[in-house]
Design a protein around this nucleic acid. Sequence first.
DNA 1: CTGTTAGCGCTTTCAG
DNA 2: CTGAAAGCGCTAACAG
Lengths: 338, 338
Amino acid sequence: MPVTIKDIAEAAHVSHTTVSRALKGHGRISPATAERIQRLALEMGYSPSAIAQSLVNQRTRTIGVVVTTIADPFVINIVNGIEDAAHEAGYSVFLSSSHNDPNREMAVVETFYRRRVDAVIVTASRVGSLYAAHLERFQAPIVLINSQAEGDYLHAVASDDVQGAVLAVEHLLALGHRRIGYIGSAGRPISSRRRQSGYESCLAGHGIAPEPDLIAVPDATSDVEAGRLGLAGLLPAGPTAILGYNDVTTVGVLMEARARGLAIPSQLSLVGFDDIELTRYLEPPLTTIHQPKEAMGRAAVQKALALLNDEQISDQLLSCHLVVRGSTTAPPRAAMVA
Amino acid sequence: MPVTIKDIAEAAHVSHTTVSRALKGHGRISPATAERIQRLALEMGYSPSAIAQSLVNQRTRTIGVVVTTIADPFVINIVNGIEDAAHEAGYSVFLSSSHNDPNREMAVVETFYRRRVDAVIVTASRVGSLYAAHLERFQAPIVLINSQAEGDYLHAVASDDVQGAVLAVEHLLALGHRRIGYIGSAGRPISSRRRQSGYESCLAGHGIAPEPDLIAVPDATSDVEAGRLGLAGLLPAGPTAILGYNDVTTVGVLMEARARGLAIPSQLSLVGFDDIELTRYLEPPLTTIHQPKEAMGRAAVQKALALLNDEQISDQLLSCHLVVRGSTTAPPRAAMVA
DNA sequence: CTGTTAGCGCTTTCAG
DNA sequence: CTGAAAGCGCTAACAG
């Protein structure tokens, strides 16, 4: 059994209240006894029970984080940002995976509720709307990062998908490309559509009508697979450049291109999205749209903390930036690939 | 304020004790009232406070996990295994990063102790020995995954570094290589030395005396950098193949080789260690030693749970296996590179 | 300045 | 089968 304030009280011949006061400095208490008790506490190896404190204070200083998958290079950078910010604020974080299953997601949130976390952060939730029902009961703030559900039921932090896609397309346009393809993600409908709309509006802004043949949203089992299928589907339309939903999708495109003997970037330019670490070690290193992943995690924590403080804070839309590496260049002279 | 058993008791005109009993099924209670109360609890949106339960039960059903860095492709697979196993057992996990700082590592463990986690899992700890002092006080089991500290003070789960390195070297030997280099890691002294000893003993077993010139343990700021420096240092000795401490180190070797116009694998074969996801997308895809990362996480949880159950369980040493991909082939005819 | 008392939400004897 | 009472470790009035 751990040492309790009662044990210290006994050893110091004072009441446990006095110990409690001595240990947290404030509260009127004689410096002498205060110091004596503190020394005693140290000697006895006392460590206050956060459980007991939580019960009486009605706050646990914990944040529950639910992610779709833990072993994901994108997600994990967000978690990293969350943990850093939480740690700085004196909070601990529970991490749990929904395995991309809405039922499991709700179960995890329920578990967090039972544990009385002060706030919940959910990344890439597909069921944001479901929270509406549970929300009245669940007092804690819930902030959604990159929500993939329709509507804005809750507090949100997201990166600016539209702006990011525009950056990508402008880069390709500047390089001289005119036939630019887009390969989306069926599993992240919201952000995929946003990126697609950025792509389309940017093209349109330059007088290029989006062609359905240059857009694919493959129904694949993985992002890599989506990239492969996507490229296969788009090739007949003769793209000179492709924007992938994210870096992993774009890796799939790269693999498929390699399998087909298509040279990147001389025959086909590629732009990814996210800027996960992997991309810089590929051959060629990927030109991509950088998402401020840790910043999003930190922003989510700040938002949650502000909410706990009853400060009203507006939703955050963080902007992306372009990282030019080796997978983009001017289109080939003979612009037909297929 | 959340609904409590008292609220339900009031609504049901029974004592809160009865509610408590009704809700957990056991305890002698009339099926009628039991069911009535359960329905009521559901209607009222009751969710038991894990905090209060933890306080009385003296166990929180939480596990504290401390890692060196969250955003690490290797670590995160371990965490994934931990979370899965913990979830299955009804445990929640606290995740925290030590940022590879021993002081911070101890601080994190202290925080976990305050939160009264039932067990602690530490990956790649450099300060295992420091726990000895705190151990008497901290009743919870502490299990170390891939500990990087001298001695075996605690319960450990690790992959078999020696066996893994032997696998790698045997593969290269079988391919015909005789001048095989090893690039280690200064930051993970224990596992780096184990891999090196597997490497050396395997060579020795085949009648090849290890050459100091073919071994480098660069003092670099990152694994990639270590790989680059390592290759630069080893090249004069004319290796035809190199075993890197891990995949990221080997990526560094690959980058440096590319920069020097060295063809992989025709001029130099490369073997990594870990089998992180990245490796299969490199050009060429890396031959590597697979570590059972999720399994190590799961094993750590099982060990922790067994310990909580007072079962004595032996330390786990999980074996690795070889994954042959594109970065290894027979040595060039003219086996001198430098 | 210090001690007494009550209570956070729950479980668990012990009586009835 | 059900209720009363005590207590998990701590904090916060309220007295003294």
